[in-house]
Amino acid sequence: MNILHMLFEILIFPGFAFVLFTALFFHWLDRKLIARFQGRIGPPWYQPVADLIKLFSKEDILPVGTNEVFATLLPLVSFAFVMTASFYLPFAVPTTQSFEGDIIVVIFLLSMPSLLYFLAGWITSGVYSILGGNRSLLQYFSYEVLFLLAISGTVITSGSWSLAGIRSAQLTSGSYFLPQLLGFFLTVSGLIGKLKRDPYDIPKAKSEMVAGPLTEFSGKKLGLWQLTNQLQTVVGLSFLVHTYFGGYWQMGTVGGFFTFYLLLILLQCLLSAISAIYARFRIDQLIRLNWYALIPLALIHNLFLVLK
């Protein structure tokens, strides 16, 4: 009985299947929102599912000179990393035990796909893939630092290195969102880099790099890569909810559940709006922006929090 219950929790709710469908739903939401911002109608609700099924049923070809084993393993591994991260970030209902330092684990798990993304570009033999991979690595060194610095603001105020600790600290002190608005936006900026969305979509910029490291992938592998990215989006967003809006936990199970999703949707709106408004950065502009402006800002912000 207990085992069945556990299996259900891991595989269906609030585990694997549930998270997956959330990811697909948010991908649809994203596309729909951007379409609406641009004055279009946008795709129907089942679009991500159809895309996924179609991609999985397509022929899988790789160019000559590509390491087959790696090409198959990379998307799988990066998918696994993000999936694991999703277990540390309970979707609405607390399941896994939180431990001191799990926030570091989540950050690590979330940044691994970027490295694998770079590798994906490196093992395929196309020029665009290699260049795109290079760019993703260059970019990695700016947004990752920013993300870490910005998120540590919440750690400093709460005095805990665990997600549960940060959440419970917010129960007493109120959500960190308003008091740390600056930190929140810096984190969002880092997150956009992680997700490689507009305007940080330099590695896969369509008009220059075709599709970046993924140019030569097709069929199942492409589907898995896209799924990874979609999953990363919701996981990243729920990470934000946990760290900056921890107070929703107070609402009880059902209330908490709905508030959680409401917050996720609002955050997705923010991301989509940013995507629609800004032009893509150039890589040097991005690095300059991050190292000269945003990272010092995050440092000052943290210093301020420590002194307070």
């Binding site: 379409a35 946008g42 070809i61 599709a211 140019t215 030569e216 492409l222």
Partner: peptide
């Protein structure tokens, strides 16, 4: 707006 039919304009032949 052909995206309402699920049609995307892709960049790579693959």
């Amino acid at each position: 707006d052909i995206e309402r039919f699920g049609i995307l304009n892709e960049a790579s032949p693959r």
